[in-house]
């Protein structure tokens, strides 16, 4: 798994498109939902807009731990799919929303908290993590295994 993060409008999508050609894209910006189980006939899958999906998750479950458990089930599912064939790779793009002022609204605080934890869990599982800053990537983890 390759986790790509960074602030909004920093060029994450363009960077992933440049690095991974001919991938199948599933975008939360388009339909709001990401697949827990993958039934896709491709070896290269990009999941984009993870933070939107995590927000949906926190709307359905107001307990952070429960959200995180569901999230980890998904991560495990993607990981299993990936490991079933050595040619498979899942690239996950998540916008960093965690460095602003504490949100006024409870639901936005929950969203932000769960997103932070979800990214930690994702980064721990990913073999590679890149941070994109205005089009420039910084590999902050590589060669890791779970």
């Amino acid at each position: 798994m390759h986790f790509v993060t960074g602030g909004a409008f920093n060029g994450k999508r363009a960077w992933v498109k440049k690095v991974y050609k001919d991938a199948v894209w599933v975008s939360a910006y388009e339909n709001g939902l990401l697949p827990a189980e993958l039934a896709i006939t491709t070896n290269l899958l990009v999941l984009e807009g993870i933070e939107i999906w995590i927000r949906e998750l926190t709307k359905q479950h107001d307990d952070a731990n429960q959200c995180r458990e569901i999230w980890n089930c998904c991560l495990n599912g993607w990981h299993r799919w990936e490991k079933a064939d050595p040619n498979r790779l899942v690239v996950v793009i998540g916008t960093d929303i965690t460095k602003g002022i504490v949100p006024m609204e409870k639901e936005n605080r929950l969203w932000r908290d769960v997103t932070g934890w979800a990214y930690q869990d994702l980064a721990a599982k990913a073999e590679k993590v890149d941070f994109i800053w205005y089009g420039i990537n910084q590999t902050i983890k590589s060669g890791g295994d779970c």
Partner: peptide, 17 residues
């Protein structure tokens, strides 16, 4: 650096970001 927080809640902020 102002783009590492949610921008989607407000159209003006989103457009600016």
């Amino acid at each position: 650096e102002v783009l590492n927080e949610p921008l989607a809640g407000n159209e003006l902020v989103f457009t600016y970001g």
